[in-house]
């Protein structure tokens, strides 16, 4: 497969994954670029053991997690949940609110839910994360519950 084709087919998907993780357009763009640099470097070694999509998403997910080395601040997930809920959201767009909520989840959940929303099969998510398929299902269910709860609070 030609690099340019992969780039065109997956750029937006990878950008969204990174946006879900970072909730910052510039950082997400940088992360997506780093992902495609790795894709470009590793493409000659790609062995078709998984689909090209799964492979690209794996690389992107690893790049997202490696952000942990660059950030010195406390993880967002250590904020008490109640504080998040009382923040007044004003006229914030629903789409922006979704990305904000996702970026506040624990790191692994951010990736799992982003892959799910990107319409990947649960088997593929299991393949990317290394978690069993049944556990992926449970986790997705729980994350969706969390998000729905936040949306309901937001809309009140």
């Amino acid at each position: 497969m030609i690099f340019e084709d992969i780039y065109k087919a997956y750029w937006l998907k990878i950008f969204r994954l990174c946006m879900g993780y970072m909730n910052d357009r510039d950082s997400a763009k940088d992360l997506a670029q780093e992902t495609f640099i790795t894709v470009w470097q590793k493409l000659p070694d790609f062995r078709n053991e998984s689909s090209i999509g799964t492979w690209v998403f794996r690389i992107a997910s690893n790049h997202c997690l490696r952000q942990i080395e660059k950030q010195n601040r406390m993880p967002k997930t250590q904020l008490p949940a109640e504080i998040e809920d009382v923040i007044h959201h004003g006229n914030e767009d629903k789409m922006e609110f979704l990305y904000k909520c996702i970026s506040e989840l624990p790191e692994s959940e951010r990736i799992i839910i982003s892959l799910e929303l990107e319409d990947l099969k649960q088997a593929e998510i299991a393949d990317i994360t290394g978690i069993s398929e049944s556990n992926v299902r449970v986790k997705i269910h729980r994350i969706k519950e969390k998000l729905t709860k936040k949306f309901n609070n937001y809309e009140q």
Binding site: T38, K42, F46, W55, R58, I59, S61, N62, H63, L65, S108, I111, D127, I128, T129, G130, I131
Partner: peptide, 9 residues
Amino acid sequence: FDLDIRESL
């Protein structure tokens, strides 16, 4: 980077 997340961690 192309290992699954668990392995790469």
